[in-house]
Amino acid sequence: MKAGVVTFPGSNCDRDVFHVLKNIFEFDTNMIWHKDENIEDYDLIVLPGGFSYGDYLRSGAIARFSRVMDPIIDFAEKGGLVLGICNGFQILLESNLLPGAMKVNDNLKFVCRNTKLTVLNNNTPFTNQYKNSASIEMPVAHGEGNYYIDNKGLKELKDNKQILLKYKNKNENPNGSIENIAGICNKERNIFGLMPHPERCSELQISPGKADGYNIFSSIISYINKRGDKVAK
């Protein structure tokens, strides 16, 4: 199983995701440089967290114009699995691979802490190893995670069951996102963006008692195994 992790200038969770994919889940994992124009043969591409291009202008706004984004959009359109974590989620929004937009956290401050979440739809490549409505915990670390979408878009997300993760309630919501949304996928279910960091809670060593991010990656593996082929050749 082959995974690629994209490094934009300013990415800073690229090595963390690489570590989890390679050492915990034993993916054959490559780093993909933001200037690469060819990406081949991957089962999964991850846009990691960080501050691509210093988050200047608006988070993700410059990264979407990176050369690597064209082949990633091709890959996604062919059904390849794309996971965007934190800044990666922001880039997916800026690239219109996912609907909606990101605002600055409602308290205007960066926030780093564990949050309680609910899994809303476990029938996707990214969440199939969770129980439906499972209560889980994952850490967040961001200054711009206040997800917003207009009413029409929100209705579509709900109708299509594209909201995969919500903060458990308003108190748990660290950024003021609409309807406590923490992560969404596209209609086709092959692109998933989320603010929490599953790579930070996939090992018991660093998240004692719980490693609730683990199932994001094990879901992906289970899905690929069942699917049995590579979509984006």
């Binding site: 989890v20 401050k109 960066f110 780093c112 670390a141 930070r200 090992e203 660093i206």
Partner: peptide
């Protein structure tokens, strides 16, 4: 103070802020 700091990036933080000493694993 420390919730404004990313104390988990690099995925080595076993014990973070608010303790007697921070503990960082060597992968």
């Amino acid at each position: 103070v420390y919730e404004q700091y990313d104390y988990m990036v690099m995925t080595n933080t076993i014990v973070g802020p608010g303790s007697d000493a921070a503990v960082i694993r060597i992968k």
